[in-house]
């Protein structure tokens, strides 16, 4: 097994684990974190794809994609938190979402 594959598998594990929690979690904060981790799992897979061993320069394209992905994720998270606050402030419950 190569290091890249191992890390890609770690990413897959992270993705699946987060998927489970995203489905079962009732708490909004937990769901927001779960979806963040889901994204991170995906990013791990992508970066592992870019890894071409200690001697060869890594493939920069997945890195660029992940950078974009991280920024998108933080934007969505910021929006999600603001929204979650309004849900609670207007009397909504996590379970209703």
């Amino acid at each position: 097994m190569t290091a890249a594959l191992w890390h890609a598998l770690v990413g897959a594990g992270l993705f699946s684990l987060s998927l489970y929690h995203l489905i079962v979690a009732q708490d909004l904060l937990r769901r927001i974190i779960a979806v963040n981790l889901l994204g991170t799992g995906l990013f791990v897979i992508l970066v592992a794809l870019g890894y071409r061993g200690p001697d060869a320069p890594p493939d920069p394209v997945p890195h660029a994609l992940v950078l974009t992905g991280i920024v998108v994720a933080v934007s969505a998270t910021g929006l999600a938190l603001a929204l979650a606050r309004r849900v609670h402030a207007s009397g909504g419950r996590s379970e209703d979402v």
Binding site: A25, L29, V74, E95
Partner: peptide, 23 residues
């Protein structure tokens, strides 16, 4: 990913009452 999102989450946590419900 870690510092800023973490800080953001920490800052907003008090405004988000936890829910103990389970699926």
């Amino acid at each position: 990913g870690a510092a800023l999102t973490g800080g953001l989450l920490l800052r907003m946590r008090p405004m988000l009452p936890p829910s103990d419900g389970n699926a």
